[in-house]
Design a binder for these strands. Structure first.
Lengths: 140, 140
DNA sequence: CTTATTTCCTAGTTGTTCACTAGGTTTTAT
DNA sequence: ATAAAACCTAGTGAACAACTAGGAAATAAG
């Protein structure tokens, strides 16, 4: 039931990039230093976010990462889904799972679907804009 | 973000015991067979649930597990917390974590607290009674 | 055009957790 | 006495987590 460091670091990185938008792209060196984590590890996460089209990368000196959309158009759910590999609490709710052989007799599927729904609703309802202005956030 | 087999099996086992209450204790052999899972593995989970006071065990022939409380007094959250080791999505929200050194500068803690809250509210709001009568369940 | 800075790409590596398996001991109804 | 059950502890193979390592390619600045 835990979120891994991937999801946590990725979200913090996205927040940092969002906060610094306008100051030009944020290099990984800077972000890793600010957050006290491994740059090489963060590199992989940033790569995923860029590949998914959430961040835009600029190579070379004075390069780094910037948002490819406005902060209010990027949800925490998107970030987590990309780096965490889905937020569904059980595998059989994953998109690519197919049909469960025990589906008809399963008494818990509705329960897990409900849990998935409250999680999705929450994480999809909070944007980077909310997160960089926590005092205004509806989640506080 | 996944629930492990521990939590899933434990919940299904609790439901089975709840459904069969009145027919005497449910032996592991029977439950394992019904659900097509390893009895020896289920044994460990049942042991945890019993140790936590959620189930009552009867040893010897014709023994097995029964509920130690009414189905409407046992929540899915309790079962999951026992076998899953807490439902908090990040470690720093765990009871025994202590104070996070980055707490003051952490922009995500409020977000995770909010996520924890919606998960807790959901799993604590559904009882075994709801789960054995899914047509009446508010979660469907 | 060289150099420093950055992203990009792929492949280890170490430790932990998952999902069991194994082999018993003790208790109890018949 | 016997069979059926819970109880207890330890081991095990595979997967995953959380990095580490080492470069190649791009780009701005001098």
């Amino acid at each position: 039931m835990k979120i891994s460091t991937k999801g946590r670091y990725a979200l913090r990185f996205a927040i940092e990039v969002a906060r610094k938008q306008g100051d030009g792209p944020v290099p990984l060196r800077e972000a890793a230093q600010d957050q006290g984590i491994s740059m090489k590890y963060l590199e992989q996460l940033a790569g995923q976010l860029a590949k998914a089209g959430l961040l835009k990368s600029t190579r070379g000196a004075h390069g780094g990462y910037s948002l490819s959309r406005a902060p209010e158009d990027i949800t925490a759910g998107e970030v987590l889904r990309i780096c965490e590999g889905g937020t569904a609490p059980v595998a059989c709710l994953e998109d690519d799972y197919g049909i469960c052989p025990r589906r008809s007799e399963c008494e818990t599927i509705a329960f897990w679907e409900g849990l998935d729904r409250v999680i999705e609703d929450y994480v999809n309802g909070i944007t980077l804009a909310d997160l960089i202005a926590p005092e205004a956030g509806s989640f506080k």
